[in-house]
Design a protein around this nucleic acid. Structure first.
Lengths: 149, 149
DNA sequence: CGTTACGCTGACGTCAACGTCAACCCCACT
DNA sequence: AGTGGGGTTGACGTTGACGTCAGCGTAACG
């Protein structure tokens, strides 16, 4: 129980000289505003601890925030993200809950893989279009350079 | 200029028996609402022709709509999409305009490639998490089946 | 010739994801 | 004792992307 083997999830052992960041430090680190962090907290996406009234963000909060921002970049809603975020930390739960979460994560994975496939296709198309565009530009330049209107 | 060699972009030749769809047909085909199509038109993303007052959507409109919806899935704004959409059909333009559009498309491509890299990473992480989750579930099932609390 | 169906045009409503602003608290200086 | 720098909680504003609704046109149907 006390030996951190290979999975340091929510480890208690490493809180030397406070591993906690203030809201401002978080903002600087992740390039977000305080308002955003409070908003995410209101939406129950992160749960910083409190020192009096001040919020303090632990490593797990940073990990969650990283996942949140990534999810956003992929176009998932905050609500979507909140659902699957539970997968990454919530292990203290019953079997049924775990299986539901597992299934949910599988769905997400499928979505992401489909998205990747479509992204590959879109990239290929855009590249082709760029090549064509470059050719046209080159031609116009040659013709235009020789005989301008 | 007149010979369609291998690039059938916006071909005039194929308009047999009206290749035009009504707004409803478009909605059914692309799973969007009429409001959405009118909205896109107001934002100058598509330009259907009119039969009297009714909108009619040609093949080029369908191609554009496909690109629009795809762009949205990747998290681009309609305004972003409108910009780069021009790359795909606009050949009658001056050199400066073409080069701007070209540069814009290159930026887009870079963004999409970065997005793909991050998506790959996210997929890998989620897969790992799923494997771990599956292992935990299996273990719980074995232990729980032998000696329930 | 009424009415039903589809379409059009404003105009206003809504929802997510924050931004902005006011008012307050607390602690540290000086 | 004031003042400055974080931090906090409402509460309202904003922007993008539509939804919704009222009022109208018109073409077809029975």
């Amino acid at each position: 129980m006390t030996a951190p083997t290979t999975a340091p999830t929510t480890d208690q052992t490493t809180d030397q000289t406070t591993d906690l960041l203030t809201i401002r430090q978080m903002c600087d680190a992740f390039d977000v505003t305080p308002r955003t962090l409070r908003f995410y907290e209101a939406k129950e996406l992160i749960r910083p601890v409190r020192d009096g009234m001040k919020r303090l963000y632990a490593r797990s909060d940073r990990a969650r925030l990283k996942l949140i921002l990534r999810g956003k970049r992929f176009g998932f809603s905050l609500e979507d993200i909140r659902q699957t975020l539970d997968l990454y930390d919530r292990q203290g739960s019953n079997l049924a809950q775990m299986e539901r979460t597992y299934a949910l994560a599988q769905d997400r994975l499928a979505i992401m893989e489909a998205q990747r496939a479509e992204l590959d296709e879109a990239i290929a198309e855009l590249q082709a279009e760029l090549r064509a565009g470059a050719a046209v530009i080159a031609e116009v330049k040659k013709a235009g350079g020789a005989a301008a209107a």
